[in-house]
């Protein structure tokens, strides 16, 4: 090419300049990240007041068994004998018979407290996050059963597959310091 006289020098100068620019660019990005990172890390969580219990949480998690599970907020539970989260509609009997249970995996445990109250616990190993009980509890009950991402299981994927499939926009990134969105005493998160 034209730079027959001292081709190396011009190109070298350009290259050195670009190299320094690249390094400065990376440094700038690093500094920017450093400033921004004071906001802290985030994790995925479900806003229970937006969730419509569509059942996608059971299907779309990258884990074979979803990281989303149902939780029971005891302080707003009615401890009903006829719990629609626990029992199928029009149950034959109000007991723990499998044919009477709404949960497909039998993940809700019913224990007698005192007449006429029963405590309902979620057995997390069995819960698949299908939200059947959540829906029934929200419609007929107090809404004390709702879905939450369980962070002992969640991989905290860069893009949550369930969030991408969530129709209601209930999935959001929340600060890792407050990783759960439990409903308050008034039933609101």
């Amino acid at each position: 090419m034209a730079e027959k006289n001292e081709p190396v020098n011009r190109r070298k100068f350009l290259r050195e300049g670009l190299w320094a620019g690249g390094l400065a660019g990376l440094g700038a990005v690093g500094g920017f990240v450093g400033v921004r990172s004071t906001r802290g890390d985030t994790v995925w969580q479900i806003d229970p007041n937006v969730c419509t219990s569509c059942g996608n949480c059971a299907k779309y998690c990258v884990l074979e068994e979803s990281a989303v599970k149902c939780v029971q907020l005891y302080s707003i539970c009615g401890y009903c004998d006829l719990c629609f989260g626990y029992l199928v509609p029009e149950p034959k009997q109000l007991d723990t018979g499998a044919e009477n249970e709404l949960c497909p995996t039998g993940a809700i445990e019913r224990t007698f407290v005192e007449d006429p109250y029963y405590e309902y616990n979620i057995i997390e190993e069995l819960c698949i996050g299908c939200a059947k009980c959540v829906k029934a509890c929200a419609v007929f009950g107090n809404g004390s059963l709702f879905l939450q991402v369980r962070h002992d299981r969640c991989l905290n994927c860069n893009e949550c597959s369930i969030a991408a499939a969530c129709p209601s926009g209930a999935f959001k990134r929340v600060p890792a310091k407050t990783p759960y969105l439990l409903k308050g005493a008034d039933g609101k998160a």
Partner: peptide, 21 residues
């Protein structure tokens, strides 16, 4: 739907368990 059934006043000294997080 919320709080249709106020949490009962237990007579047996039952206390609400905490939701694990």
């Amino acid at each position: 739907a919320i709080e249709q059934f106020p949490p009962p006043d237990f007579e047996s000294g039952y206390e609400f368990p905490d939701t694990t997080t």
